[in-house]
Structures are given as structure tokens and as C-alpha cells.
Simulated assay, not measured.
Amino acid sequence: MNTSTALNPAIIGQAEKHHAAILTRALAGTTLDEKQWIVLNQAVAAGEPVERTEYVTRIAGMTQWNRADVEDALNTLLNSGLLAAVPSGLVEPTEVGAALAAEVRAESGVILQAAYRAVAPEDLAIAARVLTTITARMAEELARA
């Protein structure tokens, strides 16, 4: 195991892979994959109907997925009744979709909360600023390509 205290891509990657494994465990037994989960969860988090085109663009930018993959996930959620289309090109979670999102968050939340509680709040704030800065810089580079 790497005992270096310097933040580096390996440490970030390991943390991301562990987060993904926890999510995979929480999604077991649902019909959702990671893309569908993120599309559903972000719609629930919005707290109001979202404009479909802008929403797809935002999720694609946030995740670095291509728009077609986000559209596919969105369509799957609409077809499964976890999201619903409302007038004017808006989509919103259904009661079933919101309930499923809450179940998945509760399942993964127990593990994540325990892990994050092991770190001092001020250290979490520093980590958030550092990772946000690194992510923004990489996004700038990707936008140039």
C-alpha cells in the first residue's frame, strides 16, 4: 500500500474505486446501473423539474460522459417510471424514483458516513477545495482538446 502523504492520481483513483464499489453494492437488486443512478440521483437532488436538454448537458459535463449515454440513461429511467416527463420539456423523479434514490442513499450512506467521520471536518473542507481545483483544471484541459 502506498504510504505517501502526498495527494496523487493513485490515491484519488483508489478512493473513487472504493466509492464505486460501495455504490455497486447499494445498487445490487435494483435495475439501476451507475449512469442511471447518477441521472436519477441528480434529478432528485434538483428538488424541482429540470429542463431535459440542459440537464443532459449538465450531467454529461459533470461526468465527462458523452451526451448519448446520458440520454440513454434518461430514457431508460423514463421508460421504467422512475422519472416522468412533464410539460415544456421538463423531467422530474416520480414518487417511486425518489423512494428508490432514498433507499440507495441510505444503503451507501452508512458506509460513507463512517468513512468521512474518520476525517476532521476542517480536513474534509481542505480536501474538497483541493479536489475541486484539480477537477476544474482538468476540465479546462479537456475543453481545449
Rank of each mutant, 00 (worst) to 15 (best):
R58C: 12
G89D: 01
E95I: 10
T31W: 09
L142I: 04
A15V: 05
A68K: 14
T30L: 10
I134Q: 12
A139M: 08
A84G: 12
R25P: 08
K17G: 14
L142P: 00
A28Q: 02
A28V: 15
A99S: 01
A60I: 00
I11F: 04
V130E: 11
V104H: 09
E140K: 12
A125W: 11
T24V: 08
G81T: 09
H19Q: 08
N75F: 12
N79C: 06
T57W: 05
E34K: 11
E16M: 05
P9D: 10
V91E: 00
E140R: 13
E48N: 06
I38P: 01
Q113G: 08
E92R: 03
D69N: 09
A43Y: 05
V50Y: 00
N66C: 10
G61M: 10
A102S: 12
E103V: 03
E51T: 04
A85W: 08
A21F: 05
R137L: 11
E107W: 04
L32A: 06
A21R: 06
A118I: 08
R129S: 15
A118Q: 03
E141N: 10
P93F: 12
E141R: 15
A84N: 03
T31P: 09
R117T: 09
W65D: 02
A106N: 08
T76L: 15
D69K: 00
V39Q: 08
T3I: 05
R137V: 07
Y116I: 02
T53L: 09
A101K: 03
Y55K: 15
L74K: 07
T63G: 10
G97C: 07
A20N: 13
S108M: 09
D72K: 13
A10V: 14
Q113D: 15
G47A: 09
V70G: 02
R67I: 13
L83G: 05
R58W: 03
T31C: 07
P49H: 05
L23Q: 08
L124H: 14
W37D: 03
E16H: 10
I11V: 14
E103K: 08
L90G: 13
A26S: 04
N66S: 08
S4A: 12
T76R: 14
R67T: 14
V56H: 04
